[in-house]
Amino acid sequence: MSLTKSLLLVALATGLLLLIPLVAMQYTTEVNWTFSDFVFAAVVLFGAGSTFVLIARMGTNGTYRLAAGVGVVAGLLLVWANAAVGLVGSEHNLANLLYGAVLLVALGGAIAARFRPLGTSNAMFAAALTYVAVTVIALFVWKPTGAAAEPSVYLVNVLVANGVFATLWAVSGWLFRRATNAHQQLA
């Protein structure tokens, strides 16, 4: 499929996904998106879809494309969760800005590796480690107050949620590593 058609499909999927909250707003007051919420969601969804399309085209096998998909989903979820509720504290907590380093490591490493499977695998593993390091640093920077002050509940929630995100980056790295092996067997 041509790049133009692929990007049109991403745009169509983005539009269809944005219809979900738009329709929900007609039936419930629980969903209350502003115009800026729709713009943010459109940019993030279209950006993630376009990124996947561009990276997946560089792969030679399904494992590479799956690895790219997992990596893009990890980035999408990181941005979405951080903007919606924050990964440490609320979305307004400045410690959450540290998670931008994870995206820089993942994308910067993949670009430096020219999206070759082995180098991109290393970039995804580095992103997973960066994710863990940022979480630890953020936990030292931010001390919960108010309703979130119950330390054991707070700590478990943060560790489990952030552990899932870090695992997504590691799975992407593992899949890129498998794509490297599949690529070498074809050569």
Rank of each mutant, 00 (worst) to 15 (best):
L45Y: 03
V105L: 01
N96G: 09
L9V: 08
A74F: 05
A113P: 11
L9N: 06
F52Q: 10
Y27T: 14
A123C: 02
T28E: 03
T130C: 08
N96E: 06
G62W: 00
T51E: 00
A123M: 01
L18M: 08
G59E: 02
L94R: 14
F46Y: 11
A113G: 09
S121D: 03
L107Y: 09
L19D: 10
G15E: 08
L97G: 15
A42W: 05
L22N: 05
L66W: 07
A84E: 13
L16Y: 11
L103Q: 11
L129N: 03
M124Q: 11
N82M: 12
A84R: 14
T120R: 08
F38V: 00
G47L: 01
L18P: 01
A74I: 03
A68D: 00
L94N: 14
A84I: 08
V72Q: 05
A67V: 06
T28R: 04
G47F: 02
L17H: 01
L17M: 13
A41W: 01
F52S: 04
A56L: 06
A13L: 14
L66P: 10
L17D: 05
V39Q: 06
A126C: 07
N82R: 13
V85Y: 12
A133R: 04
F40S: 08
F52C: 04
V53C: 00
R65V: 04
A83F: 09
A56C: 09
Y99G: 09
V53I: 09
L129S: 11
L118C: 00
Y99P: 06
G49N: 03
F38T: 03
L94I: 15
Y27I: 14
F40L: 11
E30Q: 14
F35N: 15
N61S: 04
G59D: 04
L129V: 10
L18K: 07
L87P: 09
I111K: 11
A84D: 15
G109I: 03
S121N: 01
A11Y: 03
F38P: 02
L104A: 13
R57Y: 00
G49V: 00
A101G: 09
R114P: 07
L78Q: 13
Y99I: 07
V105C: 02
M25T: 00
A41V: 06
F40Y: 10
A106N: 01
A11H: 03
L16I: 15
R116L: 13
S36Q: 15
L76E: 06
L78G: 07
A113D: 01
L54Y: 08
A123H: 08
A24Y: 00
L45I: 13
M124K: 05
L103P: 09
